[in-house]
């Protein structure tokens, strides 16, 4: 798109590449390197950029720490269920908004859209009291339900615009062929929207995976804790100086999502591209 011919252009390009590349990649590199350093080398006021001796002590500690695995399992359960549920609900709603006309549709659509701006922490004040009333505190259910909040507005809109691109003629011809509305939706339209759904699900998954605010408040037992508060409550108190282990733990908890992401990236990018082309 841009020409890089003159030395000046080359310089600007190289500078942009180096500076941002450093900003983007160096921290991750530093995380890995710190995790691989033995204890004393971490506390060197003149840090080494390549460990003198590679030590897997930090990783060993993390792998032997039962709690990390419990948190991982909890986070997976909660994030998978909430993102699947939210995507399902959002898909029906998105389809409805895109292909049907009824009274109140527009009001509701914009209400859902505005919902992204509602401060989550303000919602939490009431959600906490609600969950307390229903006895859902310290229960995965509280998290699963409230995480739907994160994904529903964005997901509904993303999927609505996805369905918008699917021509109505497809539905019409299915109708002519005698397919019921339910069947048309599930067999013909939804399969076409799979990239959109996957990217919505990833979006929801990442958000619930990251959440600290809700899980810090709605869950208090170590056995049900998810990753974000788990990491904090494990390493922010007394152990906040064991940086090597903290970095190792950070890497370990990032691996499952990274793998999943690498696997599904194709869909995600496709979903994004579709959204971008629309504009």
């Amino acid at each position: 798109m841009f020409e890089i011919r003159t030395p000046w252009q080359k310089l600007v390009f190289a500078l942009a590449f180096l500076c941002i590349g450093l900003y983007v990649f160096f921290p991750t590199y530093w995380m890995v390197i710190t995790a691989l350093k033995p204890g004393q080398e971490v506390f060197n006021p003149n840090p080494t950029f390549w460990p003198r001796t590679i030590s897997l002590e930090g990783f060993r500690e993390v792998f032997l720490d039962q709690r990390i695995w419990v948190y991982l399992r909890n986070s997976l359960t909660v994030s998978l269920s909430s993102s699947a549920l939210a995507t399902l609900v959002a898909a029906y709603a998105g389809y409805s908004f895109s292909k049907f006309r009824y009274r109140g549709r527009k009001t509701f659509m914009y209400l859902v859209l505005t919902a992204q701006m509602f401060p989550l922490v303000v919602l939490l004040l009431t959600i906490y009291l609600m969950m307390r009333t229903f006895g859902f505190l310290d229960n995965y259910l509280a998290l699963i339900l409230s995480y739907i909040t994160f994904v529903l507005p964005m997901g509904t809109w993303a999927l609505k615009s996805y369905f918008d691109q699917i021509p109505d003629s497809l539905i019409e011809s299915a109708k002519v062929d005698g397919a019921s509305r339910v069947m048309t939706m599930h067999r013909i339209i939804f399969p076409l929207a799979i990239p959109g759904m996957v990217s919505t699900a990833i979006y929801g998954f990442v958000w619930s995976w990251n959440d600290l605010l809700y899980s810090l408040t709605l869950i208090t037992s170590p056995g049900k804790r998810t990753l974000a508060p788990g990491l904090i409550l494990n390493y922010m108190g007394e152990f906040q100086s064991s940086w090597g282990t903290m970095m190792a733990a950070s890497i370990v908890v990032s691996i499952p999502v990274t793998l999943m992401f690498v696997f599904l990236q194709r869909f995600f990018i496709a979903g994004l591209t579709a959204g971008a082309e629309k504009g």
Binding site: Y92, A93, F100, G104, F108, A115, I127, T149, P153
Partner: peptide, 19 residues
């Protein structure tokens, strides 16, 4: 169409609008 949006509507009302 309305029926399809109903689950979203219910969730929205219960854990977004009401809170």
């Amino acid at each position: 169409g309305f029926l399809l949006a109903l689950p979203a509507l219910a969730v929205f009302g219960a854990i977004i609008l009401y809170p």
